[in-house]
């Protein structure tokens, strides 16, 4: 039903990785794109980000890492990657295919018909 505090917020605090406050979105992408179990997905992302596995769910560490890598952060400051441009960089960083990024590339590479 519709009780985000009782359900979404509680789960997020009790057991969630934290989404893009941390590296939760990146670990989630490895489960989705490669079918990795949680341990393998965390180790893969940690190696690509050059951080420890325990840092992945730390919002202070990951905010700095995300800013350095320019892969999007919760506080969207001027001139940092947002939305699709962050996903271009995430696809490169994690060495994965992101469906909408590939489609975006196809669209901008189409020749203009005049």
């Amino acid at each position: 039903m519709g009780d985000p505090l009782g359900m979404h917020i509680t789960h997020s605090i009790a057991s969630g990785m934290g989404g893009m406050r941390t590296a939760g979105d990146l670990v989630g992408r490895m489960q989705m794109s490669r079918g990795m179990k949680i341990k393998e997905a965390k180790e893969y992302v940690a190696s690509k980000l050059k951080v420890s596995v325990s840092d992945l769910a730390d919002p202070v560490v990951m905010s700095e890492v995300r800013e350095d890598l320019d892969i999007g952060r919760v506080n969207a400051l001027p001139r940092i990657a947002k939305g699709i441009d962050a996903k271009f960089r995430i696809a490169d960083l994690l060495d994965i295919e992101i469906n909408c990024v590939n489609m975006f590339k196809d669209r901008i590479n189409r020749k203009l018909r005049v």
């Binding site: 979404h8 009790a14 969630g16 990785m17 939760g24 596995v53 769910a57």
Partner: peptide
């Protein structure tokens, strides 16, 4: 309550 640090999972 919550999981031990390091045992977080994907939602």
């Amino acid at each position: 309550v919550g999981v031990e640090r390091g045992k977080e999972v994907i939602l």
